[in-house]
Design a protein around this nucleic acid. Structure first.
Lengths: 346, 346
DNA sequence: TTGAAAGCGCTAACAC
DNA sequence: GTGTTAGCGCTTTCAA
């Protein structure tokens, strides 16, 4: 049995296809023109047949898809899920759908994903880019076709974007650590271009004292973006004779790896080591110790991106929108007064 | 500037649209018919113009969409993400796309999501159902249109499905606990119909001794599906004068809540309380203590679902496929010998 | 080896 | 108020 079409409905009621279209289209001007009697008859037939309008045909004709594309780098990081979740919820509220794909941290995938969304003719794109700089051609195509894009993370000029602002709050985090007496603070983040978080490096650096900065090179630790890699990096760092009194981890996920490494080395957090991270994912408040972290409001970023994109769709000439979501330092249990000896205090 | 169409390419090369179609279609019979010279000319023009075939038009005409629908109940549970990830990866490998949506644990959403996928004319559907029993009409429509469906979790007769088999391994988990001397084992799971895991209840029950079963009613704890709810439920359970020596939690997420509640009540896991859960999500191996858990191979379930669905698409008359992915008990640090006193041992 | 033409299911301008 | 009709961009016979 095949899916019923508009014609089936029209035939059943004894009206033309256009009438059915008018009844079902959200278009109010058109809907007004149909008599109540006809409308109810049509609606009844639609129900009986279980008719659903074909979105492809509809959008092919109307030029609108009511669909937004969303690409995130990878699915391992809960932070990205939150963004997706926020975007999907908001889109559904507003009658849009999200076509979502992940680039799996591969440049090639990212390009493929974008092309796929092109083919499906999305009305607009939300991008959390990793590699897009590598694909100027693609970017050129996006602009050439005037496909509205909003970027998550504000880097490019003249493109709508949304991001949580970490600059001030990162400084605040370091200040918090300083106030607790920490003078040797490491920063753990992902390989460049593989994870977000580069934006937090500069304010971290800026907040350090001159002395600290001198030792800084050895204090910036980079690792691959899995929790296991973070664990290993932290393990190796904390195995040294002298290790920092505090670590700033670029996300809660990494923090979990650090926590575990500390535990395995019999280093107590926060007594022997303070730890502060970014995201405030769900489990941050349930780990032991609970994580002091910077809440990034990822869900808001996701939903905000949808709002910006829809604004842009309504008004092509709107000036560039740059939305900044304030991040917030949440102090829980993973930060405390710095230990005084270089070695951990037993 | 508008997206270039097939005609633009044809015009540029000086051939007909059909020729362009032949060159680009995966159809080998057709592709063979085109001279190498023409082909390269066409391909060159395609590149120059940045032409991408319109998937809507293509599928409208050909009747195929190369798109699969996937619906999961909610996005909070990492288990579901793993399924999505597995499915997306496999689909991409095989040249299919996944249209993914979440029903946010709401029956109404679930229905809406399915309808939305209908409209987009997916070739098939992968469903992790919560509420579908409530929508016999929808189910009727699915079968009426002969839309291939694969269910995650094997309940319905005569529909393709894939699931991890928990029966034996759940018994094994309880046996493990028994061997450690546990005689008072609670089971923490979600509200019926809101989370998966019902399948683990019966084997748990079956594994209990008669004595244990007598006390069983009070030992089956249900809560809403958030980590906070699990925390509260565990907190209240563990606050009682006599509390179980072991808890089986329906997923690792809940286990985290339990762990935290125990910590807050100064109950040591595993010394005073053993804990075993299901999923083996990423962080299960990084919590303190590391979680003893049943690995559900969620990614395999996701990719397997895609394989089953594509099999079905190739062969409508294939007998019903019921694939079972063996689950595996992973003993880590959250289980140990039962404490001997009813109270926790200090 | 290529081209012409029909039509997938729908919307929107126009006619009645 | 409702019907007629011309495509949206593509694939796919059939004919040349």
């Amino acid at each position: 049995m095949k899916q019923p079409t508009q014609s089936d409905v029209a035939r059943k009621v004894g009206v033309s296809r256009a009438t059915v279209s008018y009844v079902l289209s959200g278009n109010k001007d058109a809907a007004m023109l149909i008599s109540a009697k006809t409308r109810t008859k049509v609606l009844k037939a639609v129900k009986e047949l279980g008719y659903e309008p074909d979105a492809r045909a509809r959008s092919l004709r109307s030029g609108k898809t009511a669909t937004l594309g969303l690409i995130v780098p990878d699915l391992h990081n809960p932070h990205h899920w939150q963004i997706v979740e926020g975007a999907m919820q908001r889109a559904q509220e507003l009658g849009y759908e999200i076509l979502f794909s992940s680039s799996s941290l591969e440049a090639e995938h990212e390009e493929k994903s974008i092309r796929a969304l092109f083919r499906r003719s999305v009305d607009g794109l939300i991008l959390l880019p990793n590699f897009i700089k590598l694909y100027p051609k693609l970017l050129a195509q996006i602009t050439r076709q005037q496909l509205p894009v909003v970027l998550i993370g504000c880097r490019e000029i003249n493109i709508d974007c949304i991001a949580s602002i970490n600059t001030e709050v990162t400084k605040e985090a370091v200040r918090h650590l300083h106030q607790l007496g920490h003078k040797d603070i490491s920063f753990l983040l992902g390989i460049e271009n593989k994870t977000s978080g580069e934006d937090r490096l500069q304010p971290y650096f800026d907040s350090l004292s001159e002395n600290e900065r001198a030792a800084c090179t050895k204090n910036i630790i980079r690792c691959e973006p899995s929790i296991e890699d973070a664990y290993k990096a932290a393990y190796s760092l904390l195995s040294k004779k002298t290790f920092p009194t505090a670590i700033v981890a670029v996300n809660d996920f990494f923090a979990l790896g650090v926590l575990r490494a500390a535990k395995d080395l019999n280093i107590e957090v926060p007594k022997d080591l303070s730890l502060i991270s970014f995201d405030d994912v769900l489990f941050a408040n349930y780990s032991t110790p609970r994580l002091s972290t910077v809440r990034l409001e990822a869900k808001l970023v996701g939903s905000g991106a949808v709002d910006i994109l829809l604004n842009r769709l309504k008004n092509k000439n709107h000036p560039t929108q740059k939305v900044r979501i304030p991040a917030k330092l949440i102090i829980r249990e993973s930060t405390a007064m710095a230990r005084t000896t270089t070695q951990k205090g037993r």
